[in-house]
Computed example of a mutant assay.
Amino acid sequence: MSKLYQGIVGVCDKFVPTNLRPLWEHPAGPKTIFFWAPAFKWGLVLGGLGDINRPAEKLSIPQVSSLAATGLIWSRYSLVIIPKNYSLFYVNVFVAAINVYQLARAINYQQSLPKK
């Protein structure tokens, strides 16, 4: 798979405009997993945005808690690794923010239920 990917990158390399070369050649650029992992992680952000209108009683507190925690942890990690990976930082900030909001909604709903 690596040989295939390197071949694709080699072909694409010829078509990258001069003004995009710094991004293309960056240690966390499209030639590396450091670019593609955060790119696909935006799917979690889109999923979280899709759940904004979901009724609070349908939200899973353990799920949104774990997503919020991992978003916070990976946000910190992305700034201490070398090279610093700002795309990983931003996607994890959004993952954390959306899931903290969802967690607040779920907890607020649970607290509004009458005591048994």
Score class of each variant (00 low, 15 high):
25 E>C: 09
69 A>H: 03
89 F>D: 01
10 G>P: 08
85 N>F: 09
81 I>E: 15
36 W>N: 04
13 D>H: 01
3 K>H: 10
112 S>A: 10
98 I>P: 02
37 A>Y: 10
14 K>L: 12
42 W>A: 04
67 L>E: 04
49 L>C: 14
12 C>L: 15
68 A>I: 00
23 L>V: 13
87 S>Q: 14
71 G>P: 04
83 P>S: 00
75 S>C: 15
92 N>M: 08
57 E>G: 10
31 K>F: 05
8 I>K: 01
85 N>I: 07
34 F>Q: 14
54 R>A: 02
47 G>F: 00
70 T>Y: 03
78 S>I: 07
32 T>A: 03
49 L>G: 11
2 S>R: 15
91 V>T: 03
114 P>H: 12
77 Y>M: 07
56 A>F: 04
60 S>I: 02
42 W>I: 06
110 Q>R: 15
116 K>I: 12
61 I>P: 05
114 P>D: 11
4 L>Y: 11
30 P>H: 02
3 K>V: 09
57 E>K: 14
59 L>T: 12
107 I>S: 10
93 V>L: 14
41 K>V: 08
47 G>T: 01
90 Y>N: 06
50 G>E: 06
29 G>Q: 06
107 I>H: 08
100 V>Q: 13
26 H>T: 03
92 N>I: 13
17 P>L: 07
30 P>S: 03
85 N>W: 08
9 V>Y: 03
38 P>Q: 05
11 V>F: 05
38 P>T: 04
66 S>H: 02
53 N>L: 11
41 K>E: 12
107 I>Y: 09
58 K>E: 15
83 P>E: 00
59 L>Y: 09
28 A>Y: 13
20 L>A: 15
84 K>G: 04
103 L>E: 07
85 N>A: 09
92 N>L: 10
85 N>R: 08
16 V>K: 04
98 I>F: 13
97 A>K: 02
83 P>V: 02
34 F>V: 06
32 T>M: 05
36 W>F: 00
